[in-house]
Amino acid sequence: MPVQFILCLNKQGIVRLLRWFEKLDTSQYATHQEYIRQVFKVISQRDHRRQSNFIEFSKHTKLVYKGYAGLYFVMGVDKQDEELIYLSQIHLFVEVLDSFFGNVCELDILFNFYKTYLVMDEMFIAGEIQTTSKKELLERIGQLDRLN
């Protein structure tokens, strides 16, 4: 099943990246803003050393998340899905960003948010991963980034 959304939040709960691959189910949270607030609340309350990286979030969704320095990367996935793969997926995304920006930090993503979306779109559409080859991705993104 595809990823429902990808979120990147800092430790204050401010969004740095967001991508929804499907219509928001408004039965529980009326707006994206509320939804995000709740995601942040749930994640920030967790004890990251003594708890797993998975949370059952709503009827249809569980969260797979990982904290990197000042940022949380979160994916919303289907209840039936196997979580570990999404953890690898988040890690791959961060690795690609890291190679692309060179030791990526929150500021890179903040100031170059549009470039970060460029990376994201070459990796994930339709909630599926397109390629896992870092080399190929970096070549492609580098090339697009240089286009005027």
Partner: peptide, 22 residues
């Protein structure tokens, strides 16, 4: 220099605005 640090497509006004808000 890492690929992403390429300045070619940077938009200065945008960077200032982001820095301001931050």
């Amino acid at each position: 220099m890492a690929l992403g640090q390429n300045q070619q497509n940077n938009m200065k006004g945008l960077q200032l605005f982001i820095a301001d808000l931050r």
